[in-house]
Design a protein around this nucleic acid. Structure first.
Lengths: 182, 182
DNA sequence: ACCGTCATGTAATCGGTTACATGATTCT
DNA sequence: AGAATCATGTAACCGATTACATGACGGT
């Protein structure tokens, strides 16, 4: 919702760099050279649980970033005429600046089911479903950590750790909610 | 960002009820009768850390909800000509349905600073700032729980508990990040 | 030759954000 | 009387979502 709140990175006179922009920059940086499709696939494979982006948005961001001179574009000669994107010097600089910016941006939890509790939703209706799902997700993350954990970069492992801790916290929370109902 | 993902509550042919809609409905239900301004103030005072809404959005939602017949509107005779809004039967029904809907909607954490770790941001740049802020917020929440805890409704206390647990989790997480750097 | 999915977009729409604006109270 | 803030909006813009559309490639 409120992606433009907080620090503003100006793109053009009218446009701003959003977190989605930096996602795209970040992936193209990691991949060296990539098509919008590559970015979409990579994003879906990895950070989707934290920050998802429909593919239309990836294409839109690529257009904007090329227009702003943060990405360079070359067409693959034959075949599917893919757009091959690379970071320009300016793009690299913008990404580095973003990565180094430690400004605290308060995150709104946006847990709808907790809002429902606030407004009088019945815990016993919600907690079983929530518990099931969070337990499932936790298992998934823990298996990931066990199987491919050592292959991850430091930052990737840290992000996964966050996911695991988040799920554990949610499980504890919903158990607590359930418990105090008795 | 993606508020319309997941269960869709249809408002008119073209429009949907979003979480913001139910926030407005929920507050007007709690207050009995309220002006958009009352909703804005109440939202800012209470759920803002979980789900904030700029006042322009509150007014827009009120308009939509009145148009959809979920709110009834009457003008205060003298004075500031305030709009007094009440839930209609349909509005009450829509709110109840939402509250009872336990569908699990995966929440994207959208913690930008964790995304930065993913893309190679330096932990030692981020963790001190994050730790400071999360500790501050935790203290705030804990004091709230201590001072007004008993006055809260069950659901409000649960939401606050979530906030406390979230902050604790974040503090533990960033400490873990800091620790493993050594 | 056909079919699925790969890959790449476009169009329409909408909710949300930002910024501007203004009359009504209340306080000093 | 003047200032501050209360209360209520409007307008413009924009990013994001949803849905539609289509050529290219790989396997059978």
């Amino acid at each position: 919702m409120a992606d433009s709140r907080g620090t503003n990175h100006r793109l053009t006179t009218s446009s701003r760099l959003t977190t989605s922009s930096f996602l795209v920059l970040g992936f193209i940086d990691q991949l060296g050279e990539a098509s919008p499709y590559d970015v979409k696939v990579e994003a879906g494979r990895t950070v989707a649980p934290f920050w998802s982006m429909p593919h239309a948005q990836v294409y839109a961001q690529c257009d904007r970033l090329v227009a702003a001179g943060l990405l360079s574009e070359s067409r693959q000669a034959g075949g599917r005429n893919r757009r091959l994107l690379k970071l320009t010097a300016a793009g690299k600089a913008a990404l580095e600046e973003w990565l180094a910016d430690s400004t605290f941006l308060p995150v709104e939890a946006r847990e709808r089911n907790i809002l429902k509790l606030w407004f009088g939703g019945r815990p016993e209706v919600h907690s079983p479903v929530q518990l099931d799902e969070h337990r499932r997700t936790l298992t998934e993350y823990e298996q990931l950590a066990e199987s491919v954990g050592v292959l991850l970069t430091r930052g990737q492992r840290e992000a996964l750790e966050f996911g695991i801790r988040y799920e554990r916290m949610m499980i504890d929370f919903w158990q607590w909610v359930e418990q105090r109902g008795k």
